[in-house]
Design a protein around this nucleic acid. Structure first.
Lengths: 357, 357
DNA sequence: GTGAAAGCGCTAACAT
DNA sequence: ATGTTAGCGCTTTCAC
C-alpha cells in the first residue's frame, strides 16, 4: 500500500486552509453557501497539495457516480464505434464518463449487466446485444435507467431509441423502384435482431406494394460483417441459373461495402451499371471514393440526445421512463450506387455532400 | 431519491442469512476464511434479494476501483478502435473495466487526467494525445501508474509501449528497394507525434543508406486521416513537372488507403503498376479487396499485454515502473501494393493470409 | 470460522 | 457562512 499513501484528503486541505473539512467540501460543490474569499483560500490550499476530490467517496453518500455504462457488441461495425464516440463526447460535456463493457455479438448481456450493477452506474446504454426482461427489471428495481440503442423489445419495460428501420427500408426500396429496378436481393444481418428484421420488412413491404413478386426478392445472410457480406454476395451472384437481380440492398453499410468490393474485384461487376446498391447507416466510410454509397443516414446526434434525455441523468428523482419506443426517421442520402432519377435530382443536390478530395 | 431506495445491502443479506455482515463480505471475497456451508447460505440469501456487492463502497477501503482509464484521441483512425477493443476485452477478462476519456486529437490531455484522478482509477493508458510531465508526476505521486501507448516522451518518467516505428519504416523502405523503386514519397501524420516522426526517420535512413538522394524523397502531410491523405496525394501527383515517384509510403494504413482511393479514382493510377504503396498498422481494412495493402503489422496483442504488465494491476504494492520505453518489432505483411521480389516470396506466402471471400 | 467495531473520504443535515 | 456530527456500504483488524 505504500504506493497509495500520498493521496491528500479534504482534511489535509482543511488543515492547511485553516477551515473545517466541510468547508472544503463546499468549496468544491457549486451552489453551496460559502464566502467567495474562503473558497479561494481553500482552492489555493488544494492546489498546493495537488488535492483532487475523491468522486468514489462522494458517490457513496450522493448515490451518484457520474458514470454511465455503455454495453457494446460488435465493434467491427464502424457504426457502433461512432455511437460510442458520440456518447463519450456528449457525456463528457455533461461531466459524466463512459464505462465500456464489451459483449460478444449475439451473446446474452446478462452477466455484463451484473457487472454493471456493481459499479453503481447512473444509467446504462445497451447496443447490439440481447437483454433479458429479468435484467431490465433488476436495473429498474435499483433505480438504474436503461435504454436500448437501436434495438427494442416489443412489450417490454425497457425503453429504446432507434432509427425507424422499417421506414428506412422503404426509402431504399423506393429509390430502387424510382431508378427502374425490377428484381431485388438483400444481404441481411443478425436474423434475431429487430434492426435487420425491420429494415427487411420495410423494404419488402414497399416492393410488394408496387407489385413486385416475392420470388423476385432474394435474401441471403451476411453476418453483419464486411467479410460475411463479401462471401454472401459472391454466393448469390456466382454461377446463377436465373438472371441476376437489378438491385442489392445491404442491410447496413459495412455489408453493402463488402458486397460491392467482392462483386467488383471478383466478378468484374460495375456499380450501378450492372447492379444498383443501397446501404443503411451512412457511416463515414460510405462516402469514400470507391463506394459513394447511396444509403439511409441514421441521425446519430439526435438519437444520442434522445437517449440521454430518457436517462434523466440530471434528475434522478424522475420516474424511470418505461417501455418507450422512440423511432427516429432516417434520411436517404443519394450518392452514386443508385442512378438518380430525374424526379430526385433536387434531393441528391440537397445532401450537402462534398467529396473526399 | 425514491428511485434509489431498494438497493439491498450486505446487512440485508446478513439478516436474511442469519449471519453477521462481515460474513457476507467474506462470502463475496474469494480467499477469506469462511465455511463452505455458510458461504452457500449467504449466496442463496443474496440471490433472493438480488444483492450485488457495491464495488464503489469497497473501493473506499481497498483503495482499488478495478477501473482503468483509457484516454483516446483520434477515434477516426480505426487502429485506435482496435486498441480500445483489445484493452476492453483483456481487462474485462481480468475483472476490470475501462473508463473511456476522449480528447480532441492533438489537444493536451491535462484536464482529462485531472478528471481521471477523481475516479481513483487503478491505472491509466494514454493513446495519441499529449501529456505534460507535470501530469505524469501527479499521477505517480498518487500511486497511479500511467503508460503511453504508441507514444513516448524521451527522458520522461512516463513509461511507454510502442511499435518499433523506426524499424518498421525501414522495413517498408527495404520492401520498396527490393521491388526496384528509385524515387519515393511519404504522406506523414501529426508532425509533433513521435510515431510519425520515427516511421519517417527509419524510412528515410534506410533509403539514404542505399544511396538514394534526399531530393528523391518527397514528403507531404496528410493529417493522419483518410481525407487528409486523399487530398495530399492529389496535390502531390497532379500537374507535376518532375517525374512521379515510384513508391509512396503512407505513414499509417488509413492514409495509405485514402491516397490509393484518390489516386485511382481521380488520376486513374494503377497500383502497384504505376505506383507502389506501403502502409503501417495493418488494420483489418488493409486486407480488403480494393486495397490488399502491403504494410507493417503492429502486434497489438503483444503491445496490450506489455502495457498491462507495466501497469501491475494485480499488485499495487509494486513500485511504479518509470521511464520504460518498450519498443516492439512489427512484421512486414506482403500483400499486393508492392510487387513481391523473388527473394521475398517465401515471406509473402508465410503471411498466413486468406482473403475476404 | 465468526462477530464487533473502527474506519475509508466524502456529503448533508443540523447547529451555531 | 461555518463547524459538528452522523452516516453512505463495505473491508479489515481484533477478539472470541
Amino acid at each position: 500500500m505504500t504506493r497509495l499513501r500520498s493521496r491528500s484528503t479534504s482534511f489535509d486541505v482543511a488543515a492547511l486552509a485553516g477551515v473545517s473539512q466541510s468547508v472544503v467540501s463546499r468549496a468544491f460543490n457549486p451552489g453551496s453557501s460559502i464566502a467567495e474569499e474562503t473558497r479561494k483560500k481553500v482552492i489555493a490550499a488544494a492546489r498546493k497539495l495537488n488535492y483532487v476530490p475523491n468522486s468514489i467517496a462522494s458517490s457513496l453518500t450522493t448515490k451518484r457516480t457520474n458514470i454511465v455504462a455503455l454495453i457494446l457488441g460488435n465493434m467491427a461495425n464502424p457504426f457502433y464505434v461512432h455511437v460510442l464516440h458520440n456518447f463519450s463526447q456528449r457525456l463528457q460535456e455533461m461531466g459524466r464518463q463512459v464505462l465500456t463493457f464489451t459483449v460478444d455479438p449475439g451473446a446474452e448481456s446478462d452477466d455484463a449487466i451484473m457487472r454493471v450493477l456493481q459499479y453503481q452506474v447512473d444509467g446504462v446504454i445497451l447496443t447490439s446485444a440481447q437483454l433479458s426482461t429479468r435484467m431490465t427489471s433488476i436495473c429498474h428495481e435499483r433505480g438504474i435507467p436503461i435504454v436500448l440503442f437501436n434495438r427494442y423489445i416489443p412489450g417490454s419495460d425497457a425503453s429504446g431509441v432507434r432509427c425507424d428501420n422499417a421506414a428506412g427500408g422503404r426509402q431504399i426500396a423506393e429509390a430502387f423502384l424510382a431508378a427502374g429496378a425490377k428484381s431485388f436481393a438483400m444481404i441481411t444481418g443478425d436474423p434475431k435482431g429487430t434492426t435487420s428484421q425491420d429494415r427487411v420488412r420495410g423494404f419488402v413491404e414497399r416492393l410488394l406494394e408496387e407489385g413486385i413478386r416475392r420470388t423476385d426478392i432474394e435474401e441471403i445472410e451476411g453476418n453483419s460483417s464486411y467479410e460475411g457480406a463479401a462471401s454472401a454476395a459472391l454466393k448469390l451472384f456466382k454461377n446463377r441459373k436465373r438472371p441476376s437481380p437489378d438491385a442489392l440492398f445491404g442491410i447496413n453499410d459495412i455489408m453493402a461495402m463488402g458486397a460491392m468490393d467482392a462483386l467488383r474485384s471478383r466478378l468484374g461487376m460495375r456499380i450501378p451499371d450492372d447492379l444498383m446498391v443501397g446501404g443503411f447507416d451512412d457511416i463515414p466510410e460510405a462516402r469514400r471514393l470507391p463506394y459513394q454509397l447511396t444509403t439511409v443516414r441514421q441521425p446519430i446526434d439526435l438519437m444520442v440526445e434522445e437517449t440521454l434525455s430518457i436517462l434523466h441523468l440530471d434528475d434522478p428523482t424522475q420516474q424511470i421512463e418505461r417501455g418507450i419506443d422512440r423511432p427516429i426517421t432516417g434520411k436517404l442520402i443519394w450518392r452514386n450506387t443508385i442512378p438518380v432519377p430525374p424526379a430526385y435530382r433536387w434531393a441528391a443536390d440537397n445532401s450537402g455532400e462534398t467529396d473526399a478530395s
